[in-house]
Amino acid sequence: MKKELICISCPQGCRLTAEYAADPAQAEVSGNRCPRGKTYAITELTDPRRVVTAVVPTTDSARPVLPVRTSEPFPKGKIAELLNELYKIKVTPPISLGEVIQKNALDTGIDIISAENRN
């Protein structure tokens, strides 16, 4: 099998080619300008993930939403469900940069963290 991919791990956007017999985890990857390209190609073929960013409502009317993110790339197939959960949260300042807003989201072991400081 031969798959063409574009690495999204950094703005370079390398064009990758992944070749494998049966198991994508064993793919030979070319076209990557750094080792992260190989990791990306294999993850993308076996267990695609994305960093999810969103805003959640706050109780502070002057700054009504807080930007949040997943602590790591999140399984792509569960993003819609995650967003539904996130929009139900309401947070109350003070909140600091990196503070966990929701632990172990959807049992993935990945946390939702604050991307800003709020007093």
């Binding site: 960093v51 969103a54 940069l97 800003e116």
Partner: peptide, 22 residues
């Protein structure tokens, strides 16, 4: 710019816009 994709070169880490701003 609440998405990620900032700071790979300057902070050697991929950050969101608000994180880079902080």
């Amino acid at each position: 710019c609440i998405h990620n994709g900032f700071g790979l070169r300057y902070f050697k880490e991929e950050l969101t816009g608000p994180e880079y701003a902080c």
